[in-house]
Design a protein around this nucleic acid. Structure first.
Ligand code: MN
Ligand code: MN
Ligand code: MN
Ligand code: MN
Lengths: 225, 225
DNA sequence: AATATAATTTAGGTATTCCTAAATTATTCT
DNA sequence: AGAATAATTTAGGAATACCTAAATTATATT
C-alpha cells in the first residue's frame, strides 16, 4: 500500500527537497531546525519514510537523507501548490509578498488537483511565484533558474533582480523598502570580499545602499550583458 | 487554557450546530452518521468537549448535546468560512454549485481571519452562499431565513426558490436539471399529501415535473403574494 | 410491568506525530 | 592516536482521534 501523505509528511518532503537542492544530503539537524521540531523526531520520521513502500527517502544512519524519485514527485507537488497559491493570493486578493507565505503554507496541503488546475489556468500557468521562485509545471518539472546571488557579483556589474530567498515578513519588507523587488535594475559599485559588504545602486533611487551578506546572499539576479 | 480547535473539533461543532438548529439536542448516533465515524468515538469526543475549559458543549448522558455560547461562536466561525469559500469558489474560479462543497470542507479549517476578510470584502459581504444558505456575519450573527420547504406548500401557490439543503453532487445536478436553482419561480399544481408527491411548474419550462419528498423536503422557497 | 430492541457508553486497542533524556556514533582538535 | 565535542539515534512516553466488542441504559411493545 502507498504511504498516505499526511500534512506532516508533505512538509518533510518539501523541506528535504529544498535542503538537497545543492546535491548534498539533508542532515537530521538541519531538517529539525527548518521544521521546528526535535532532531529525535526527525530521525523517527525519516526512518519511517525510507522504509515505506515505495520508499520516499534514501537514508543511511548518520549520513542524512535524499529524496527518491517517488519522494521528489510528492515534494514537487507540494511546492507547486505552495507557489501557485502565493501567486494567486497576490494576484486576486491583494496580498503583499511578505504576507503570502504563511497562508500558502497551510493551504498547500488541502487544495485539490482541480483547484490547482483552476488557479494555474486563471493566471495563465505562471512560471514564477511572487518571490521569483520557479513553479514546477503540471507534470512536475522544475523550471531552470540560472540566477546568481548578489554576493557573488564583481564591482561595476549591472543586473536584474529575479528571485529572493526569503519568507519572513521582516526581511521581505526590508527588501521592498530598499527597492530590491523582482525586476529591479541594480549596479554594483564597491564590493569588499573581506568584510562581506557591498555598495549597490538601485535604478530609480537617489542614494546607493550598503548591504551585508544577510541581504546579498538572499537576493538573486541575472547579470545584464 | 483554551481548548485547541483541531480540524476534527471544528467539524463536530459545525455539525452539532446544524443538527440542533431545530432546538432539539443532537444525538450521538445522528452526529456519528454525519461525521462518518463510530458512535463510540462521538461519545468520547463529546465528553471531552463538554468538560473542556470553557465547555463547548452541554452534555448529559443519553440526552444528546447542545452547543454552549462558546461552542456556538466557534461553530459559526467555521460555517462562515465554509459558506464564504463556497461563494468565492463559484464566483472567482468557475466552480459549479455541485462541486464547491468538498473543496470548502477542507479549506474552511485552514484559512486565516485575514483571508476570510479579504474574500468577504472582494464579494461585497454576501449574505448567502451558492445554495442559498445564510452566511453568518463577521460578528457571527446568522441572518434570518424565513423560507419553507416545498413539501409544505398547498396546491396553486407561487413561490421563488431561495435555498436548497443539499451538498451531494448528484442531488444538486438533478435539481439543476429540473431548473430548481436559486431564484427560480415555481407554481404548485397538484399536491398529494398521502403519497407525498407534488406536481410543480417551473417558470420557463415546458413540462411540469412530479417531485417526491427527497426533493421537496430539501428545496426551500419564499411564497409570492 | 416485564421483555425485547435500540441507543449509548465503557473498556481496551491502534496509528500518528510529537516530546525528553540517555546512549551511541562521528568528527574535530591537540 | 586519544580526548573532547557535536550530531544522531534509541528508549520510553504523551496527546489526539479513531476503532471494535462488550456492557449498560433507555425506549417501545406486548
Ligand atoms: Mn505546510
Ligand atoms: Mn515564495
Ligand atoms: Mn470540514
Ligand atoms: Mn452551501
Amino acid at each position: 500500500m502507498e504511504q498516505t501523505l499526511t500534512f506532516s509528511i508533505q512538509d518533510y518532503l518539501k523541506n528535504i527537497y529544498e535542503l538537497t537542492d545543492s546535491g548534498e544530503p539533508a542532515t537530521t539537524t538541519a531538517l529539525a531546525e527548518r521544521l521546528g521540531i526535535a532532531p529525535a523526531s526527525v530521525t523517527g520520521m525519516v526512518q519511517k519514510l525510507s522504509t515505506a513502500k515505495p520508499p520516499l527517502l534514501k537514508y543511511r544512519k548518520h549520513q542524512g537523507v535524499m529524496l527518491t524519485n517517488e519522494g521528489q514527485r510528492a515534494a514537487l507537488e507540494v511546492i507547486r501548490h505552495h507557489r501557485l497559491l502565493e501567486a494567486w493570493l497576490v494576484k486576486t486578493l491583494g496580498y503583499s509578498w511578505d504576507e503570502v507565505h504563511n497562508e500558502a503554507e497551510k493551504l498547500e496541503h488541502v487544495i485539490s488537483e482541480d483547484f490547482e488546475k483552476r488557479i494555474a489556468a486563471a493566471m495563465g500557468n505562471p512560471e514564477r511565484d511572487p518571490h521569483g521562485e520557479p513553479i514546477p509545471s503540471e507534470d512536475l518539472v522544475m523550471p531552470d533558474d540560472e540566477s546568481v546571488a548578489l554576493v557573488n557579483l564583481e564591482s561595476k556589474q549591472e543586473a536584474v533582480v529575479c528571485r529572493v530567498e526569503a519568507q519572513d515578513t521582516d526581511l521581505l519588507k526590508h527588501l521592498e523598502g530598499l527597492g530590491l523587488v523582482i525586476g529591479a535594475h541594480v549596479k554594483t559599485l564597491e564590493v569588499s570580499r573581506y568584510d562581506q559588504v557591498m555598495q549597490l545602486q538601485v535604478r530609480g533611487r537617489k542614494e546607493a545602499v550598503v548591504l551585508g551578506p544577510a541581504v546579498t546572499s538572499r537576493v538573486y539576479v541575472e547579470v545584464v550583458a
